[in-house]
Amino acid sequence: MTAATMGTPILSVRDLATSFFSQRGEVQAVRGVSFDVHPGEILGIVGESGSGKSITCMSVLRLLKATGRIKSGSALFDGQDLLALDEADLRDIRGNKIGMIFQDPMTSLNPTLTVGEQVIETILRHRQATRSEARARAIELFELVRIPSAAARLKSYPHEFSGGMRQRVMIAIALACDPKLLIADEPTTALDVTIQRQILGLLRDLQARLGMAVILITHDLGVIAEVTDRIVVMYGGLVMETGPVRDLFARPMHPYTRGLLASVPDLRDDSHKRLTPIPGSPPDMAHPPAGCPFTARCPHAMRQCAAALPPLFGDSHAARCWLHHAEAPRIAGINEVAA
């Protein structure tokens, strides 16, 4: 599926900028991010801590902490700008047309209510339904996310569930009102690898069955490769590269993406050869560099990179790197395909 054949996006984010303000000054967490999510696709947003990937989605949902402020941009969802809506209209959309799942299901669930109450509450808030209809729907949702003995488990409290089962409850709540978009922020990071596999399989399965769009935020390249259709790579509050998942893994255009892929060990290679780390550490977003934020760690940095922020070069697969300027020097594997 190419961008041209995907039709109207369900979510269209343009030039989003978000900062946090404290006594130490301004931290520019997101510095002008644009991307689209199309109906029925899974978009992965990958980045390391501080890259701005979670803040981007929290901004779109307007769930920032008190010190955070959206400075500019728009987020068009289903014809409405989420960043311009008043709080009441927004509450109508969150948990209804947009479902959300977070990393730690324990902090997102109310420990003093049974999980059944929490699912039923969500349904009754957004839908015209009687209590018994909502309860029947809750059982259906628990079966959908494969919680065994669904009707009985409605009466359990969050602490009576394992981490994996709690995440299933969260997914059930997120799906309660048939959302058009599901935003999942590191949904499997706190889970064990065999449980992660179960939850990722469930998410992919539900997405195909219900046809919703999904944004999956993660730091894990393996998770990204496993479930997404398209990827946005973030670094220093910016989109550094974006493209279809297979293209991006086969031909990463940005030196940062290449560095990330090279720094994880290859499971199929059992020679004890040294890993190739990216030297240094990410920039301090209280004082973001003027040019490309990856300049200080980039093996191919040129004078231009520190001087000016490059635009995104390319179309459906694009990278924010001066090496893709038409007159840049050729570097094998990045802007020159090996013969």
């Binding site: 994996g164 065999t194 992660q196 393996g222 990204i224 490769a225 496993e226 297979r246 893994f249 499971l267």
Partner: peptide
């Protein structure tokens, strides 16, 4: 366990849930 590792390669084939339960 080994079948559950997410491999950073979108073309890799992946077995369905290799283990049930918790």
């Amino acid at each position: 366990l080994l079948a559950s590792i997410p491999v950073p390669d979108p073309t890799a084939t992946r077995p369905a849930d290799p283990v049930r339960g918790e």
